[in-house]
Write a protein that binds this DNA or RNA. Structure first.
Lengths: 289, 289
DNA sequence: GGCTATTACGGAAATCGTAACCATG
DNA sequence: CATGGTTACGATTTCCGTAATAGCC
C-alpha cells in the first residue's frame, strides 16, 4: 500500500469516476483502473463498486484514513518547503464570514511596517482553506465555524496546524422578514427543528439539511444566500455581525443550544515570517476590541 | 514521496544506522542509502547527517509527520483485516500498571460466557501497545499514564483508536524509606524539583529526567524499579494501588500538581467482537468498584 | 449504441542487489 | 584498518500507455 494507491482511491471516490480521477491525477483511465485493482487485491476486498462508482463500506473507511494521511503528507512537504520560503509575500485564504474587518485592520498595520510586502487574499470556504494551507498554496487561513464556547473548530486533527482563536460571537437565525418567528427576542433550534434550512457549504455556520428536499447553495456569496432566505427557501445560521443588507430578512439571536461563531487563524507549525507577523497583529487586534 | 521512503527515513532515524534499518526493513544497506538519497533530493535538503547518523532539523520534523502517517496506515490496514477476523481469539497488550486486577476480573467473566475463547495477554509498555494495536498483532490494549483528571491520555491523535476510560486513581511519589521526605503526609513536585528521578519508559507514569546524569530503567519489572528506588538512585511516580512489596521504600501521596494515573482501553474503531465484549466487561466492572 | 471500466501487451522507468569504492572514527 | 555509508552497474520488476474488449445505462 503506497501513497500513490491512496491518492488514486481518494480521487476515484471523490470524483465518482475513474475517468475524471485519472485526468485529475495526470494518468490514463487504464492506469487508475490498474491501481485500484491492485489495491483491492492487496487488501483482499472490493473497495469501490463500479457503475455507479461508489465506495464499499471498507472503501469508505479506507478513504477516511487515506484523506488524513494525504493531508498530513502535504503538510509535511509544505513545512519543508516553507523553511526557505519568501519573506516578501503573504498569501491568505479567508472564509467569507471570518472576521473580514479584523483582517483588513491587521493588514493595514502590517503594511505600514512592511511596505514592500506583497499580500494576496483569496476567498475560500473552510475545507478548501485547509487544503490550500496543506498543499502550501497559502501561508495563512482564516477559517470559521460553529462550536461550543472556547472550543476549537477541529477542522483537522488537533496539532496538524498551528491555530489561534481570534473571535467568538453569538449566532443569529436568519429568517424571512415576514416569518411568524421573526419578531421573537430569541430562538431555540428545537423550535425550528422541522423548518427548512439552506445548506451552504461555502458558509460553514449553515446547518446540515435535516430531511430530504430543500435548497443547497454551493456558492459563497452572502447576497445570494440572503436572497434565498428572503424568498422563503429556508433559514440560515450566521454570526451576529453578518451584514443583512436590507429588510427582506431578519435575524433572531440563537438562545439554545449554547453555540458561538468562532474565527481561527491557521498556519503551518513552521510558520513563514510574514504569516507569523500577521497572526500576531490579528491576535493583538482581536484581544482589545 | 512514497510510504516506502518514509518508512526508510523513520527506520534510519530510529535505529541511528542505515545498516540496521536495512535489515529491519528487509533491504540491503545500499537500497536504504539510495532511498534516503532520493528522498533528500526530492525535498531538496539533507534529512540525516551521516557518521554519526542523526536527523537534521528538517529530518526530525519530517519524521514526526511520517511516524503519524505510518501509524495511521497501519491502523487502516488492520481495520480492513479486522472485518473478517477470528471471533474465537482475543489478543491483549496490557501495560504493567494498567489495572491488572480489573483485567483479570473481566477475563474471568468473559470466559464464563465463552468457554472456547482463546485469550492471550502480553505485557507491553504504552507505546509498544499502540504499535501492536496499529499493526494488528493485538485486538485490545490496556494503557496507562499520567494526565489531568478526566482528560484522555492522548497517546496518539484523538480519534485514531476507540478509547474507553477505565480507572483514575491518585499518584504517589515512591521514595527510599529513609528519605527525609518519606514521612510527609503529601508532597508537591516543586519540593522535589532538584531531586533525581528514575527514568523508566516501561512505566509511563515515571517522570522525565530533569537534568543530566541519573538512572534510566529500560525494563518493565516493578520489583527492579523499586529496588533502584530503595538504593537511592532516585524517586518514581506510581499509581496509589501499586504494590510496594516491602518496607525499603515508602509512598507519599502527590498533592500538587493535580494529576491522576489513568487507565484506558484502546481498540481499533472497527472492533472485533471478542474485544468489544471485553471492553464492555471492563467498563461495567470499572463503573461499580 | 455510446460511455466507461477492464484486459492484453509492449516499452520505459524505477528499484534493488552485488560489488567496488570511499570516508570516518 | 575496519566498520559502515556511497556509487556504479546490470538484472529484474513494476508501472504506465496504447489499443482492443467487455459491461451497463
Amino acid at each position: 500500500m503506497e501513497l500513490r494507491d491512496l491518492r488514486a482511491l481518494v480521487a476515484v471516490v471523490r470524483a465518482g469516476s475513474f475517468t475524471v480521477a485519472a485526468t485529475e491525477l495526470g494518468y490514463t483511465q487504464s492506469a487508475i483502473s490498474q491501481q485500484i485493482a491492485a489495491l483491492e487485491q492487496e487488501v483482499g476486498r472490493r473497495l469501490v463498486e463500479r457503475r455507479p462508482v461508489r465506495p464499499t463500506a471498507a472503501g469508505a473507511r479506507l478513504v477516511e484514513h487515506a484523506a488524513r494521511v494525504l493531508l498530513r503528507v502535504d503538510v509535511a512537504r509544505s513545512e519543508l518547503g516553507a523553511i526557505d520560503a519568501s519573506d516578501t509575500e503573504l498569501r491568505i485564504a479567508a472564509c467569507p464570514l471570518a472576521a473580514p474587518a479584523l483582517l483588513s485592520a491587521a493588514l493595514r498595520r502590517l503594511r505600514m511596517n512592511r511596505p514592500s510586502l506583497r499580500v494576496t487574499v483569496g476567498s475560500e470556504n473552510a475545507s478548501t482553506s485547509v487544503t490550500r494551507l496543506a498543499e502550501g498554496s497559502v501561508d495563512l487561513a482564516l477559517v470559521e465555524g460553529i462550536t461550543a464556547p472556547d472550543n476549537p473548530l477541529l477542522l483537522t486533527e488537533a496539532g496538524l496546524f498551528s491555530s489561534t482563536a481570534l473571535v467568538e460571537e453569538p449566532l443569529v437565525v436568519v429568517l424571512p422578514a415576514d416569518h411568524p418567528l421573526a419578531g421573537r427576542a430569541s430562538l431555540d433550534l428545537g423550535t425550528l427543528s422541522d423548518a427548512p434550512w439552506i445548506v451552504a457549504p461555502g458558509f460553514s455556520p449553515t446547518r446540515r439539511r435535516s430531511g430530504a428536499g430543500g435548497v443547497a447553495y454551493e456558492g459563497d456569496d452572502i447576497v445570494t444566500l440572503l436572497t434565498l432566505v428572503a424568498a422563503g427557501h429556508g433559514s440560515a445560521l450566521l454570526p451576529q455581525s453578518a451584514r443583512l443588507l436590507d429588510e427582506t430578512v431578519s435575524a433572531v439571536p440563537l438562545a439554545s443550544p449554547i453555540l458561538v461563531h468562532r474565527t481561527e487563524a491557521l498556519t503551518l507549525r513552521t510558520v513563514a515570517e510574514p504569516a507569523a507577523a500577521c497572526v500576531a497583529e490579528l491576535r493583538s487586534l482581536a484581544s482589545r476590541p
